[in-house]
Nucleic acid binder design. Structure first.
Length: 210
DNA sequence: GGCCAGGTGTAAA
DNA sequence: TTTACACATGGC
């Protein structure tokens, strides 16, 4: 099957009913501070391992901006050990949360005022993490693309030079939706791509559905 | 036992 | 500006 544009891909994935009907728009606790932590923790790491870390942080009452920014670094490393790269990730989380408080004061202000450039200037936050935070924590109008997106579109015959090129191809669906529904559409679009690839591409079978 | 996961920073070419 | 490598755990 040939896919003309991102809207067709979106509709196709939508018809597969890959996401559970829930108000969370794929990322658990969409729109909350917890998403920021998940974004860092899940870098090159399975979500199962991230959940272990999030449980550790939750039972120790550390799932807040203040809790994270003031937490002892060694304690933080211990809690997030299951997610791998724990030394780097602990440092990045601590710095990021401290900078959020220093620059924006609280999470709500952060969500409305933070820019992509500000996020990209933070250690441990690359393009995908910046967009993930904007899309899933701040409910902004930013599409996340990742290696799954890349692989899927390559399999469908597309080639992209850069992250941005791929992102803009995906964001082309914007003309089919209102500004109000767009953040959720992007959130769900990326979520559907990930779920699709996890299910069908694990070996070689992209053609199963397309 | 090897490979991969909801990537990023850094150093060297 | 690109490429190579380090960072690390747990599931399959």
């Amino acid at each position: 099957m040939y896919i003309d544009d991102s809207y067709e891909l979106y509709k196709k994935l939508k018809s597969l009913k890959l996401l559970q009907e829930s108000p969370s728009f794929w990322w658990p606790h969409y729109g909350s501070f917890e998403v920021v932590l998940g974004v860092i923790l899940t870098q090159s790491t399975s979500w199962k391992n991230v959940e272990k870390s999030l449980v550790n942080l939750r039972v120790n009452d550390l799932l807040s901006l203040e809790g994270m920014s003031t937490c002892n670094l060694d304690v933080l490393m211990l809690h997030i050990t299951p997610s791998g790269y724990y030394r780097n990730k602990a440092k990045y989380i601590k710095l990021l949360t401290q900078n959020i408080i220093e620059t924006f004061g609280d999470f709500e202000t952060f969500c409305t005022e933070v820019s992509r450039e500000w996020l990209l200037a933070q250690k441990g936050v690359g393009q995908e993490s910046a967009d993930s935070i904007l899309c899933y924590a701040c409910k902004r109008c930013e599409m996340v693309v990742d290696s799954y997106t890349q692989k899927l579109l390559n399999a469908l015959g597309y080639e992209f030079e850069s992250y941005d090129e791929l992102k803009y191809w995906c964001e082309n669906i914007h003309s089919y939706f209102s500004d109000e529904e767009l953040p959720k559409v992007y959130a769900e679009f990326h979520g559907m791509i990930v779920e699709y690839m996890k299910r069908y591409s694990s070996r070689k079978a992209i053609e199963i559905v397309f």
